[in-house]
Design a protein around this nucleic acid. Structure first.
Lengths: 186, 186
DNA sequence: GTCTATAACTTGATAGAC
DNA sequence: GTCTATCAAGTTATAGAC
């Protein structure tokens, strides 16, 4: 039996991801999770506390799934290509990128910090991967690792944005394919 | 004397941009614009109607400022580089990209359509610009115009996202610089 | 830890007079 | 076109019993 606190977090992770933090109410989370009001407020006296746990958990989940997608691939370049595949279900939105335009997240310093931390970890992983690619000879030595990693992350985040704007997954696929062509020709 | 309707739209354009559509109330728009409640509801019986006008207006504004930034530049490549500079004040968020993760926008078909249209026009402009660059010899003929344009748009939208996530304009600058290095070496 | 009741406030409007 | 009054529903909790 999963405890109530975890039930709430599990529901909120999904609901804040797809419905937004500000636009999803505690009541909706209670209904989805099947947890009663008394129980909910016992574990999460404020919405921001639940928000923080969700941002952190979604950040961990995303980092783990990126690492899993990269796992076993022999070159840095192949691992970057695998990361570019992260926008393959872009209409759902990015698990953490979706929070960047949420006024309720930006208004709370603790939530901003959790979001910043999640992006920082992803950036570090990508920068390391670029360096590894340069060491194993799969990526040009002339690239600036930090800037190249930032571009890779941005194109994926932007792919989510354009796909949601157009309602077309193909927008995301075009973006990552266009970027990949430039990266591989570099 | 500007009329009330225009005052409301002017306020809402700024407020929905920086504060989000769902998270900005009609009452806040009235207060900012100095327009009274009766007057407000006379012009905008529903919030979605105001939202649609704002998404359309912000889309037009953005397209116009991109065209202005490109104006007079002799090659397609230079015009693309100018577009990459669009994320030079990324902490404010993208004037239209900010709507893509707003649940209230996504819930209304008319607002989704307006958003999609704005992105479509920007995409077309960029795709034309890539083709022009190929014709004037400033961009490699081997690039797929549609995919390359999609990548350019995505990296800029993603630059806004990562800058807002980290709270650092430098995140956006790194992303566009990293992309530019790949584009120019292609 | 969980329940039900309640509360103070905000949201997105509507009603009817001027 | 603009004003003030009002409203039903929803939001984010708090209170006190079990």
């Amino acid at each position: 039996m999963i405890d109530s606190k975890q039930k709430v977090i599990n529901s909120a992770k999904r609901m804040f991801w797809h419905g937004g933090y500000s636009t999803t109410s505690p009541k909706q989370v209670m209904a989805d999770s099947g947890v009663g009001q008394g129980s909910y407020y016992h574990h999460f006296p404020s919405k921001a506390e639940l928000g923080r746990e969700v941002v952190e958990a979604n950040g961990r989940d995303l980092l783990a799934s990126v690492q899993a997608a990269m796992e076993g691939l022999p070159t840095g370049r192949e691992r970057l290509v695998a990361f570019l595949g992260s926008a393959n279900a872009a209409l759902d939105g990015c698990q953490i990128g979706n929070f960047t335009y949420d006024a309720g997240i930006q208004a709370e310093p603790e939530l901003r910090a959790a979001l910043s931390s999640a992006f920082g970890q992803l950036s570090s992983l990508l920068e390391d991967t670029v360096r590894e690619g340069q060491e194993d000879g799969s990526l040009p030595a002339g690239l600036d690792p930090q800037k190249t990693a930032a571009a890779v992350l941005a194109v994926v985040e932007g792919a989510f944005v354009t796909a949601r704007a157009s309602g077309q997954q193909a927008s995301a696929d075009d973006a990552t394919a266009g970027f990949l062509a430039l990266l591989l020709s570099a």
